[in-house]
Amino acid sequence: MSRTKSAFLPLFVLLIFRREKKFDCMATTKMTTATGQFGDRAFKWLTLAMAFAVFVLIALIGYELASGSHLAMQKFGWRFLISSDWDPVNDIYGALPVIFGTVVSSLIALIIAVPISVATAVYLTELAPLWLRQPLIMFIELLAAIPSVILGFWGLSVMVPWLHAHLFPAMRGTLGFLPLFKGPDYGPCILAAGMILAIMIVPIITSVSREILRSVPGLQREAAYALGATRWEVTRIAVLSYAKKGIFGAVILGLGRALGETMAVTLVIGNIAQIVPSLFSPGATLASTIANEFTEATGDLYYSALFELGLVLLGVTLVVNIFAQLLLKTFAGPSVKPQN
């Protein structure tokens, strides 16, 4: 089909230009080439300038955050990162509790999401019957499209009450000897935030892992099949071990997303900046603290401290994302599409 198409190509091109009625005059060849050259150069520079917007934006983000957090940096220095007092009333700001909340909630999300996502990706590329693949993929893409504020609202009104009624009592019963699952549980908490985050990063990890698995050469699979391997054995020896690095990249990409996720977390985490062992207690993340306090902040130092939280968040997500991109790019060249 594409062959017949390409045979008609010159015709197709001509037709388009015939309609434009600009491309007809042989006498002005010299002129057209001259303007053509000028047009070419201008267009190239125009598009280049637009492409450069990405660098400008990165610089802008870095500059705004750095200059915004100047005041807090001057006042607290490195102590900002290790001090565990987040006390707006006394104008004292330490980021440790919110860093703690960010890390813990993201870790919970990874622990839940990684096995499920990778298994789903494996199912979708290797094991599922063909007719089921497309519908499942579409469902997962739609899940990825749900705005996070909606997921957070659903989490707050449906999931959190359900957790308190069913899952948390059960966890307390079986795992209650661990400090992680001790203490009172009511309302929003870090564990709920981790779970909402898991729901949010599952589609990314799944779809990027799926791309990775799909890019494993068919020859690798055939080699394993020819040895008499079952489908699962083929997946294990030929596909998963080949794709390890790429899947790791997908996981890190998911981590980057979890670290920066805002609205859903804000709604279910409780927004109390504290370091406590119990996952049933409320917490706060870098992003949720900014979201929650920014519009109510009073005083320049408070603003500046929130900007510095943003800077820390940017730094962390940047490092994580760069790492993920490098993993994905070295795994399969630029063809693996990053998804966010």
């Binding site: 055939e222 080699a223 040895l227 008499g228 020896i237 030929a238 071990s241």
Partner: peptide, 21 residues
């Protein structure tokens, strides 16, 4: 088919060793 392939081995045009092994 697993049993058949176990009894009938195959070598391909392009060599395909498992690169992680």
């Amino acid at each position: 088919p697993v049993v058949v392939r176990r009894r009938v081995g195959m070598v391909f045009q392009k060599s395909n060793p498992f690169p992680t092994m």
